[in-house]
Write a protein that binds this DNA or RNA. Structure first.
Lengths: 226, 226
DNA sequence: AAGGGTATCGTACAGTGTACGGAGACGGAA
DNA sequence: TTCCGTCTCCGTACACTGTACGATACCCTT
């Protein structure tokens, strides 16, 4: 059997691995990664479950593909420009991508097969650092440090129930009741004086840590201990 | 029916929520978090699946409990000592705990109900920073920065297939074949000159970034822009 | 006409979390 | 004693998951 254009699904000018992954991305963003099943994905594509396995070996490959799609969205640094500015751009871009797709952070832990976009992104970043005068060792360390911060921040951001409008306030509220007993004074302090302030957005704190790290990183000599 | 001591399971002097969570931790460490199912957990405890639901509302609560168990393992800083030393201890302790339980990092993203140990740990850390002279704002930022780095590093460590003995080398090898074409020169450079070196252990890089961050953090004045 | 590649799908199976309700053992109250 | 709750444990059943296996239909080449 072969139902090409316009048989089952409405606008389906031929399935493809690309289309499957794109729809998976859309579904993950809309309903969360937990709701992304082969069956729901197939239905959304106007197909039957087993059809997807023609384009994808298994669900793990879909998840791998999702992570790679997210990496596509991250600005690639160039070897030419000011390295700090390049790293800044990359970091902010990465954080924004991971905030658009919070589930991607949790996925990173279990992925073992980096996709082409991921590899290209890493390669470009390493290249920028090397071109700026970092030694191989320094590059590895700087990269590890920057990426750790980016991923870690994204992880914490993802762990906060974001919902739609008010980022905080309704999150801290219910928890607060539990320990109105004064058991956690410092957390209450932070919550009331920082987090629950009207215009507060945790995402803005990202720049603080990033600049602190960038200020401390320098290519040339530095670490004498190899 | 009530089978108390020594009926079905061998050494089972009465089930308890604590025992359930402990066994879940053991199973997650041994077989991975994906293999932790209600059924397998029940069997390991010498019980039947539905019995667990007397001690736990649902599987999500088990996962919450697991995360809290991990936090118990992290050294709690004290408000008295040198704050940098306290934070250093805490950071290393956290990294080690997350390396012992790599699945915990991926779990963090989806947890919304922090357990008592988690809360106590956060409270103690905040208290140490405040006692060292950090303002509320500075405390929030420093905490965010340190935790982001810790979690991010742990995430990257978890993403590397650790296996048993040799941490690297067999990881980079198979991937390397794919791009022996010279498409990713900088990654090859890093891999050959750093990662695949005999005594290399990525975990040691943790201290580098941590010290860099600790050196740049200082309580008193600093940021004039509120 | 025969064969092979491309694409789609039906059926079935083992496994998952858990809702629902029942059953035995215990304590105390009547 | 009888009765009633509470505690602990579990059997059954249901909807859902990923996917192995094989069938089917179409097109293109030989």
């Amino acid at each position: 059997m072969m139902k090409d254009a316009g048989a089952g699904g409405r606008d389906r000018p031929g399935l493809s691995r690309e289309r499957v992954l794109r729809k998976a991305l859309e579904l993950a963003d809309r309903d969360g990664i937990a709701a992304l099943s082969i069956r729901s994905l197939a239905q959304e594509l106007g197909t039957k479950p087993m059809t997807l396995y023609y384009y994808v070996a298994n669900k793990d490959q879909i998840l791998d593909g999702l992570v790679d799609l997210v990496f596509i969205e991250i600005a690639t640094p160039e070897a030419g420009g000011e390295w700090k500015e390049q790293m800044r751009r990359r970091a902010h871009s990465a954080r924004e991508a991971l905030r658009r797709h919070p589930w991607a952070v949790g996925l990173l832990e279990s992925r073992k097969a980096p996709g082409p976009a991921t590899l290209k992104h890493h390669e470009a970043t390493l290249g920028t650092l090397r071109a700026a005068g970092f030694t191989v060792q320094q590059t590895a360390r700087a990269y590890s440090l920057l990426d750790s911060y980016i991923y870690g921040f994204a992880l914490q951001e993802a762990a906060l129930p974001i919902a739609g409008s008010e980022p905080m306030a309704e999150v801290a509220g219910p928890i607060m009741e539990r320990f109105a007993t004064g058991e956690y004074p410092h957390m209450v302090e932070i919550a009331t004086q920082v987090v629950m302030q009207p215009g507060y957005d945790y995402g803005n704190e990202f720049a603080y840590g990033l600049e602190l790290i960038l200020d401390a990183l320098e290519p040339a000599p530095a670490d004498q201990e190899p």
